[in-house]
Structures are given as C-alpha cells and as structure tokens.
Design a binder for these strands. Sequence first.
DNA 1: TTGCTAATCGGACTACCAGTCCGTATCTTA
DNA 2: TAAGATACGGACTGGTAGTCCGATTAGCAA
Lengths: 197, 197
Amino acid sequence: MRERADAARNRQAILAAASTLFDTADDPLKVTMDDVAAAAGVGKGTLFRRFGDRAGLLQALFDTRIDGLRAAIVDGPPPLGPGVPPRERLLALLDAMVQFKLDNRRLTRALEQTSERASFLESPSYLLAHALFTDLLTDLTGRERAAWTAHALLSFTRIDLLERLLADQPWTPERLRQEIQDVAAGILGPAQDQAGR
Amino acid sequence: MRERADAARNRQAILAAASTLFDTADDPLKVTMDDVAAAAGVGKGTLFRRFGDRAGLLQALFDTRIDGLRAAIVDGPPPLGPGVPPRERLLALLDAMVQFKLDNRRLTRALEQTSERASFLESPSYLLAHALFTDLLTDLTGRERAAWTAHALLSFTRIDLLERLLADQPWTPERLRQEIQDVAAGILGPAQDQAGR
DNA sequence: TTGCTAATCGGACTACCAGTCCGTATCTTA
DNA sequence: TAAGATACGGACTGGTAGTCCGATTAGCAA
C-alpha cells in the first residue's frame, strides 16, 4: 500500500530539517531527535515511526546523498565506473570516497560515531564498498589477501581520522588525499603488473 | 599531600572491580559506572572523584595494563626496544600492539568506543604510539610522509576492525597478525638489505 | 588517648536523551 | 459522506553519566 500523503510530506520535512541540522551543528552528536522533530515541525512519534531510530534516520540521509556516487560507480564513466583496470579503479574509488566523506563530514561523523553496537563496519555502505574492493583486489593480490586488504584501504577513510588530520595545521584536503593515494599505491604494489604474490 | 589511606584503598578496589567487570562482560559498553561502584563496594561519588569520568577510569585501567609493553618499548630488548633498524622495529611494534589489543580486547573496546568527543586518536597511548612511529618512519619514508604513514599503520589496530575480522569464520588471530604484517610491509616498501630473515 | 580539621564517603538527586504508548486527528476509498 | 485504516504528537518511561552535600573518618598534634 502506498504511503499516505501526510506521511510522505512529513518524511520529506524530516529529511530536510535533519539535513540542515546535522550539517550546521558544530558537533553533530549533540543534535538530538527532539531537535530534529521540532525543526521539522513534527511530533517525536512521527519521527521514530518513519525512521525506526537515530541510526535509521542518519542512514537514510546518508543514502540520499551518496546515491550519485553509487550510480557513478555502478555504471558511470571511467575512472569510477566498470571497465577500468583494477588498480586504477581502486585508487579512484578510494579518492572519491575520501572526497565524499570530507564533503559530508558532519553527517558522516554523526553516522560513523552513532552506531555503537553494530559499528559502521556492518553498515550497508561499508559492506558494499568492501565487497567491491575485495572483488577488484582479487585480481591484484589474490583471493587470500583481498578481504583484509580491502579493510585496510577502507580504514583510511574513517571520518575521525580524516578530520583529526585536517585539524592539524599543515594538512590541506588536497595534501591528505595525495598522501592517501601514495600509501594506497604502496599497498597495491608497484604499478607494473606483477602476477600474484 | 599524600593520598589518604582510605582513598588509596578505594582506588585499588575500584580498579580491581572494574578490571573484572569489563573483562567479563560480553558487551563492555553495557557496564555502567553504577555497576563498577557497586562491585567495588564504594559510593558513586567516590568513583567519580577518583577518576573524573568514565573515560578516565578506562584510561587508568588501560594504562596499568599497557605498562609492561611500554617499558619493553622504551628500554627493552630487541625487537621492541631501541637499537633495532626502523623497519624491523616498526613491524614488531605493530604486531605487539595488535597482540596486546586482542589480549585485552574487551577493555580496549570499551576504551576506544567510549571517548566520543576526544576520540581515542587524542588519547595518551595513541599519541605516544604515533610519535614513536613517526620518528621511526622519518628514516624510512622521509619527514613529509612519516606522520600520515604512522596514522595509516595505526589504523590497522583499531579494535572494532580487529574484532570484526575475527568474527568472520576463516580468520584466526595468527592469520590476522600475519596479514597485517604483510600489508604493513608493503607500505614500508621493500626491505633494503638481504632477502629472508 | 583525645580532639580537631580537612579530606573523603555515599547515595539521593539532576539533567538529558532515545525510544514507546495511546487517545485523537486525518486520509483514503467505496 | 461514512467507516476503517493509517498517521499524528507529545506526555511518559527507562536508563545512565555526572553532581551535591550532610555524615563520616583518617591523620595529626597536644
């Protein structure tokens, strides 16, 4: 059955209000569900009925924002899309993820630090990224090492680490991205194709 | 002025009780400060006066446990102690840290997931490890890249990542440690001197 | 031993927040 | 337009970190 008109309207109002709140707040962890409900002009019950819990709301917000990137990866043009040599594609994907998280840093922080129990290592977006990375890595490092190497690369994109680095004086986003690329390139091995290891 | 006898006694009682509680609990995040106070046979006020807050208690516990490792690093024998070539020492240190965190996994989990505001990236033990790693890396990768590379290596030791991997069927602690060593070796670049060891 | 003072004790109390509940209001469809 | 299904909202619950302050006790001097 379709969602009732008022329900759909409220869903949008909540997403819009939450989007602004989390982006604006200095500390997104301090944005409460009451804040969101109030800003959306909606009761608390409505908020929870729509999104289940805090993590659900954050994931929904994150999903709408990351959709463009996901599309670009699934069937976009190079270097993110399919049909690119694994090594290049992995580096491009990693860079795109870093960029995305920095562009959405407050929301990302809220998301990665909210889910305590099922850490963000279990979240749909992480699982998806890990599956894709593992697949691409299988060609480069062999099946054995692919899974762990994928985790290793993804661990560079944790928002607390990224933000911590940017808080240090000499780091700019550009320099950070470049260094991540360098280290990642080291993990992937020399550019020349070497069969297995 | 020295700490009063009853205060010192209570500090020990609290540390002992908390140690047991955090190690025993399935989910150390569910151990409350009330639990600790009750188990130690002490009032809540006493607990907070001694350790400031939850993070302070956890850090104090962690510090007592890690002290042996710290001593081994500062002036112990090879391969952890000083006087070892940077590359070897870094790999040994990394492995020791992984091992330590796994041996103390519940406490480590409580610690790394408790400090929300000042994430564990600001904790004394992380800062110490990062400083040491950066120093050793300066010889290997140059000053420029040392700081970031240190973060990259340390990101492999996050307890949620380690535990997540161990939860997957095929991973044993030994295999995990070996894979971490392999990837870390890749980051550090090929060994300069003779092959094999 | 006795008495004095400052440090310490303990548990009731506050503040805060995620998530629930249920009587009321609104939408949908026939 | 009326009935039933769905959604609304905000008062309420439960649970936790951290505070407060009157009662207690250690440490010390006489």
